[in-house]
Simulated scan of single mutants.
Amino acid sequence: MTVRHRLTTVERVRDERSWLFTVRNEYGESTEVLLVPCEGGVEAWVNRCTHQNQRLDTGHGATVRDGEIVCPRHGSTFDSCSGYCDNGAAAGTTLRSVEIDVDNGVVYLTDAAVSYLHDGEITGDEDDDGPSSTSHISF
């Protein structure tokens, strides 16, 4: 049986438009995971664009518009529910998912390949303050 770790609530993810937490992956590395609203609930994705390993949420919330997560570097957009990108530099790729479960409005981490470390971004990573954008999209 998979151990569940309580993360947050669906309501909080919807209110904040995204929610970030850190896990240890199967290689012992710290990895950020992004929760985003999706039809009827939330989805969890590794917090990296598939194009250039760019963080989608740089610690200040991900940009989510019309059901799509926007990469701050090149403007590629990923469907919040499927993780699939059909435009820009990341077109034809899909974000890596992380298994979660929603029970009575509470979001739980259930992915056996990772272990929960803490809420928020990876600490001590001062070299990744955000992108130097080359996007054609303005915010």
Rank of each mutant, 00 (worst) to 15 (best):
D57L: 08
S115L: 11
G67C: 12
A113C: 03
T63Q: 05
I69W: 09
E68H: 15
E126C: 08
V114K: 01
S115E: 15
F78T: 03
H51N: 03
G105W: 02
T63V: 08
H51D: 06
D127F: 11
T94W: 00
S82T: 15
L117W: 01
Q52E: 14
D79S: 11
I69P: 00
R65M: 12
Y84T: 11
S97D: 00
L117H: 09
A90H: 02
V106M: 06
S115V: 15
G92R: 01
H60K: 12
G67V: 13
L56K: 10
F78V: 13
Y84R: 15
Y84G: 04
L95Q: 01
T58P: 04
S80V: 08
Y84Q: 09
S97N: 12
T50P: 02
V98R: 05
G67F: 04
G124C: 14
T58R: 03
G61N: 10
V106I: 13
Q54H: 06
C71S: 04
D127P: 03
A91C: 09
N87W: 02
F78M: 02
G75W: 01
L56A: 04
R55W: 15
S82N: 08
T50G: 00
R65L: 14
V114L: 00
T94V: 07
G88T: 06
L56Q: 10
S82V: 09
Q52M: 08
L56S: 11
G59I: 05
R73N: 14
Y84D: 04
G59T: 05
D128W: 13
A90F: 03
N87F: 00
S76Q: 09
S80N: 01
V98S: 00
T123I: 15
V114N: 06
S115F: 07
Y84E: 10
L56C: 10
H51L: 01
T123W: 08
N104R: 09
A112N: 08
V107E: 13
L109T: 03
T77W: 01
I69F: 07
T58D: 03
R55Q: 11
D125R: 12
Y108A: 13
G88P: 00
H60C: 07
A113G: 02
G59C: 11
G124V: 14
Y116G: 07
E99Q: 14
D103M: 14
G124P: 10
S80W: 04
Y108V: 14
F78N: 03
A112C: 10
H51I: 05
G88V: 05
E121M: 15
R73G: 02
H51W: 02
T94N: 00
E126N: 09
T58V: 10
N87D: 08
H51M: 06
C85P: 02
A90N: 04
T110L: 08
P72N: 06
R73T: 02
I69V: 14
